Amino acid sequence: MDALKSAGRALIRSPSLAKQSWGGGGRHRKLPENWTDTRETLLEGMLFSLKYLGMTLVEQPKGEELSAAAIKRIVATAKASGKKLQKVTLKVSPRGIILTDNLTNQLIENVSIYRISYCTADKMHDKVFAYIAQSQHNQSLECHAFLCTKRKMAQAVTLTVAQAFKVAFEFWQVSKEEKEKRDKASQEGGDVLGARQDCTPPLKSLVATGNLLDLEETAKAPLSTVSANTTNMDEVPRPQALSGSSVVWELDDGLDEAFSRLAQSRTNPQVLDTGLTAQDMHYAQCLSPVDWDKPDSSGTEQDDLFSF
């Protein structure tokens, strides 16, 4: 819950932080000083300027060897085509990944977070970031790969997607708890209302004896509580940590079903599988986004697919 609360507080303090972009060759504004600060901008989305290598189908939802083989196929196909790589912007948030063309600003792909089953910074092609997700059109699994400016960037994108998945799962947990509370309150309110109706004398007997209905007592009954809980029953509950912020979080049926399955089948359902080692994760978390744009010590960066 700490990640969720800190993310909400950060967004309320400075929503404009989320509009910064990394990996864009110096076009961005001043960047936060450390990885923790940038992680807090996830709610509205972190932007990464990358190059799209392509996509291939895979048979399993996750796995280092599986993704490595898929990336190898994608890279080989991209090299064989001889075409310049498409420059894209990857927007990562707890909602998922939005992929747009840098030149036309046209939407290429919009992947809900619950469809993503794996992401990684490839070991062999260490400047490549990739994720595996279920197609929104059918049940097939797709591996999408992107060329980053350097290994640090690939690791940073991988960690960002993993963190977005974690925050999304926490949102789901909060929403589920809130819905259970509202359902319980609604049920209790309905029981109270039913009890009051059972003990209320029939209207005919009131008229016969000349008694008047006590409207004041009726007004004191917990009807307002019942209506408050039943009027918006169809509205999706939102985490309290975000009250007053500009973010509107809505959970669709697909996300609810997917996270429910994860909660039942996995020990740590909030953790998205990645190909990063503990050492890689520690190294990337210690980086400032400013470091992502620094040239690798191995030599001059080449803006070309064939540089790796």
Rank of each mutant, 00 (worst) to 15 (best):
D2A: 06
L4F: 08
K5I: 13
G8R: 11
G8I: 12
R9H: 09
A10L: 09
L11C: 09
I12S: 15
S14M: 00
P15I: 05
S16L: 14
A18N: 03
K19L: 04
Q20T: 15
S21H: 15
G23D: 02
G25P: 02
G26Q: 03
L31M: 13
E33I: 09
N34R: 09
N34P: 03
N34T: 14
W35P: 13
T36F: 11
D37H: 10
T38C: 07
E40M: 12
E40L: 09
T41Y: 11
T41L: 15
L43Y: 13
L43T: 05
E44F: 08
G45R: 15
G45P: 09
M46D: 08
M46N: 08
M46K: 04
M46T: 13
F48K: 13
F48M: 11
F48T: 11
F48C: 12
S49H: 07
L50D: 15
K51T: 08
Y52G: 14
T56G: 13
V58F: 08
V58L: 13
E59D: 13
K62F: 06
G63P: 01
E65A: 13
L66M: 10
A69Q: 15
A69K: 08
K72D: 15
R73G: 15
A76F: 04
T77G: 06
A78Y: 05
K79I: 04
G82V: 13
L85F: 11
K87D: 15
K91V: 08
P94G: 06
R95G: 15
I97A: 14
I97G: 10
I98A: 01
L99N: 08
L99H: 10
T100L: 12
D101A: 10
N102A: 11
N105T: 01
V111M: 14
V111H: 13
S112C: 13
I113L: 04
R115N: 05
I116W: 13
I116F: 12
I116Q: 04
Y118Q: 01
M124K: 11
M124C: 09
H125I: 11
D126Q: 14
D126F: 09
K127N: 14
A130L: 05
A130G: 13
Y131T: 07
A133W: 03
H137F: 10
H137N: 15
N138M: 10
N138H: 15
N138R: 15
H144N: 15
H144Q: 14
F146Y: 13
C148I: 00
R151F: 06
R151C: 02
R151D: 05
K152E: 13
A154F: 01
Q155E: 08
Q155N: 09
A156H: 00
T158S: 05
L159Y: 07
T160C: 12
T160Y: 14
Q163T: 00
A164S: 15
A164W: 11
F165V: 01
V167F: 10
V167T: 00
A168T: 06
F171P: 00
W172P: 01
Q173M: 02
Q173H: 11
K176Y: 06
K176T: 09
E177Q: 01
E178C: 12
E178T: 04
K181E: 14
R182Q: 06
R182L: 06
S186F: 04
Q187P: 07
Q187M: 05
G189A: 01
G190F: 08
G190E: 09
V192S: 08
L193D: 10
L193M: 06
G194A: 15
R196Q: 08
Q197W: 11
P201H: 15
P202Y: 10
P202L: 11
P202D: 03
S205G: 06
L206T: 08
A208D: 07
T209H: 07
G210C: 09
L212N: 07
L212Y: 07
L213M: 15
L213R: 12
L213T: 05
L215P: 03
E216H: 01
E216Q: 07
E217L: 10
T218H: 01
A219H: 07
A219F: 03
A221E: 04
L223Q: 06
S224E: 02
S224I: 06
V226C: 09
S227W: 05
A228M: 01
T230N: 13
D234T: 09
D234R: 03
P237I: 04
P237A: 03
P239N: 00
Q240W: 00
A241E: 02
S243K: 07
W249L: 10
E250P: 02
L251N: 05
D252H: 04
D252Q: 07
D256P: 03
A258S: 07
S260Q: 14
R261L: 04
R261P: 02
L262Y: 08
L262M: 00
Q264I: 04
Q264V: 00
Q264K: 11
R266M: 00
R266K: 02
T267G: 05
T267Q: 08
T267A: 03
Q270Y: 05
T274L: 02
T274K: 00
G275F: 08
G275H: 07
Q279S: 01
H282K: 09
H282M: 08
Y283H: 04
Y283P: 09
Y283G: 13
L287G: 01
W292N: 06
D293I: 00
P295V: 06
D296F: 03
D296E: 13
T300Q: 09
E301Q: 02
E301D: 10
E301G: 12
Q302M: 05
L305W: 03
L305D: 08
F306K: 00
